[in-house]
Design a protein around this nucleic acid. Structure first.
Length: 293
DNA sequence: AGTTGTCAAGCTAGT
DNA sequence: ACTAGCTTGACAACT
């Protein structure tokens, strides 16, 4: 089991997701920003190795505007050496990597331009992971998309587009159960048709799982991951006490987390902690997990 | 130096 | 009709 946190490290004093305004785009600007982002990413991975966090989500802002028409910057060739070195480090230390393109990626949109932009966005994410020579266990996660008033049709469109995706994307793409629209059973029906692995989010399942058990859901999600996909990836978060339903917690509740581990100890899975205080909660979670072993 | 409105992209649900 | 929220943070223009 590998444990980690997404995108941002609050301890080491640099960010790997620095960006800028589109209006101030220039080749010089993007070259500088990507260089700094990669250098910080490397520092974060060093930090993570030292602390034992072997799972990390790389920010989509690491190459700002990567899929925007304005961007002609050849990041993969300019930073080839750095990227390969990063990949070697990741592989040598058996780290797990994921990326999570944002809400604008909608493969099931009615609008073909939105679909086309979404595919472009997925492409660069996959190329980024390819540039580090990471295998198919490094994943790019998205949600199914919008419902557009008819979930059945929305699911059909997702399946249709998925089947047309290039191998570059399909070997990395996974779908996550969301908290309002497409729950685990929707994702499973897409999996049936496509073979796409399902990343399991316990909090979304609690919000939108028809009251079905978390452990059973986790097992079903795990069954969608093939050997080449690696272990089941999961997102873990919990409700911020006293706040709106669905709001992520600021700090991990280690008692709940330990219980979650105990209930699911029969499955091997990796955990991305979507908790606002990032590596602080990850350290507590890792300590709890190590105590179990 | 500190404050704050705004940032490429879209959808849903709640007001 | 409008906007918070989504992995949210941080850029950049303004005091």
């Amino acid at each position: 089991m590998k444990i980690g946190y997404p995108c941002i490290n609050r301890s080491i004093g640099c960010t790997a997701n620095s960006t800028f305004r589109l209006a101030s785009y220039s080749e010089e600007r993007i070259a500088t920003v990507v260089k700094n982002n990669l250098s910080c990413l490397r520092k974060i991975l060093d930090f993570n190795l030292e602390k034992g966090f072997l799972f990390f989500r790389m920010s989509s802002d690491i190459v700002p505007f990567a899929s925007h028409p304005v961007c002609k910057f050849k990041w993969a060739s300019v930073f080839k050496k750095e990227l390969l070195e990063m990949g070697d480090f990741i592989k040598k230390n058996s780290m797990r990597i994921s990326m999570h393109p944002d809400q604008f990626v909608l493969l099931n949109s009615h609008d073909k331009d939105i679909v086309s932009r979404s595919v472009d966005e997925l492409k660069w994410h996959c190329r980024f992971l390819d540039s580090m020579r990471l295998d198919g266990s490094a994943k790019v996660q998205i949600h199914v998309g919008g419902a557009y008033g008819n979930k059945t049709e929305a699911i059909k469109r997702f399946i249709k587009i998925y089947k047309q995706l290039p191998k570059l994307i399909s070997k990395r793409l996974v779908i996550e159960n969301d908290d309002r629209l497409f729950n685990l059973s929707d994702c499973l029906s897409i999996h049936e048709e496509t073979g796409i692995p399902i990343i399991f989010d316990n909090f979304h399942h609690a919000c939108n799982g028809n009251g079905t058990s978390c452990s059973d859901a986790l097992k079903r999600a795990a069954s969608t991951w093939r050997e080449k996909d690696g272990a089941l990836m999961t997102d873990y978060s919990s409700q911020e006490p006293g706040e709106r339903k669905g709001k992520h917690a600021e700090h991990i509740d280690i008692k709940d987390f330990s219980e979650y581990l105990r209930l699911n100890s029969s499955i091997d899975f990796d955990i991305m902690l979507e908790i606002k205080d990032k590596e602080k909660s990850a350290a507590k979670a890792l300590a709890a997990a190590n105590k179990k072993l």
